[in-house]
Nucleic acid binder design. Structure first.
Lengths: 174, 174
DNA sequence: GCTCGTTGGTTGAGCCCTCAAGCAACAATG
DNA sequence: CATTGTTGCTTGAGGGCTCAACCAACGAGC
């Protein structure tokens, strides 16, 4: 966009939609966050970590992979795993083949914490999101979400593509 | 729900929708947050405070009203206004009629900060949300959001409705 | 007037996050 | 090898949020 271009302001309709959407997302997030915090004593991000870890073969993942899978920064993951290790839900393990690496290993206590937390959380998602929406709306929400993801992914995709191209170019140059 | 009732797990379809929705919201939020932080040096919540304040007559609001209007806790607002006052965007003013009360007054610098931040933020909302969606999808998103808000409002709505009714009743009583 | 509950607002501790810096182990190059 | 850059992960500082505790000012009842 040009430096001096007029900003394309939102129409009243769009503004109303945007505010409702913001409010809905905020309320939903707050609702799920407090439910999980009160009933299971963990923030939602930790719950997601437990879910992803529990689905991994052997309940073990490289820190880096876990970060990517949960769209988390390395730093955040490091802090989070530190706290979850203190809670006894997870154990760090060294990597033999690459001594920089570290594994996060879901413990039995972690699995139990997840299993205790899951039903309440799913129920909350159901009652606050899926139950009030019609099946058609659920479908629409899925498509809308996919579109937004597509729109926002380019940066990573571009970086990845660029990376790939650079590698291929380097390879071609040799 | 009964104590021992089987949790109503999500179907694969629902699970996919939920994960996409979570991802979309997370990415959108992160995108807007970093845009605003980098271009205007403020978090999104502060931006919202500036917007609401700027729309108030005289650019002044009671702390309490501002908290309600932005769906913020009193505590959060207090901390936020403290920081925004330090940034020179807002000034606290005492209330004469109720000496407990406090006003938040948007300063000229605050208004300018908002006007500087707005175009970039709106553009970001456009390009990441409204542009990629069809008008029909925008309409759908509005309805979906309204439904979610309805579902999650009961607590506040009950209080607000009660308040309104009380006020009307008082007026009728005179 | 005094008490007692409520209301408006602030404060401090603690948690989660981000950002930038740091460090050790690897990998490629000369 | 030695060097240089990169990768995998950690750390510390600082910001924003919540929660509970707090305080002052109001207001209703005796």
């Amino acid at each position: 966009m040009g430096l001096m271009s007029q900003p394309r302001w939102l129409t009243d309709e769009e503004q109303r939609t945007w505010r409702d959407f913001s409010a809905a997302v905020g309320m939903l997030k707050a609702h799920l966050e407090t439910q999980l915090q009160q009933d299971a004593g963990m923030p939602h991000t930790y719950y997601e970590l437990l879910v992803v870890l529990s689905e991994a073969p052997g309940q073990v993942m490289r820190m880096s992979d876990l970060a990517i899978a949960t769209r988390s920064s390395r730093s955040r993951l490091s802090h989070a795993i530190a706290r979850m290790e203190a809670a006894g839900w997870v154990r760090r393990e060294a990597c033999e083949t690459d001594k920089r690496g570290a594994f996060a290993h879901l413990t039995q206590a972690g699995l139990e914490a997840l299993e205790a937390a899951a039903p309440g959380h799913v129920e909350a998602v159901r009652t606050s999101l899926f139950d009030p929406l019609t099946p058609e709306q659920v479908r629409q929400l899925g498509e809308i979400s996919a579109t937004i993801i597509d729109q926002l992914t380019p940066r990573c995709a571009a970086a990845a593509a660029e990376e790939l191209e650079r590698l291929e170019h380097d390879a071609a140059g040799t």
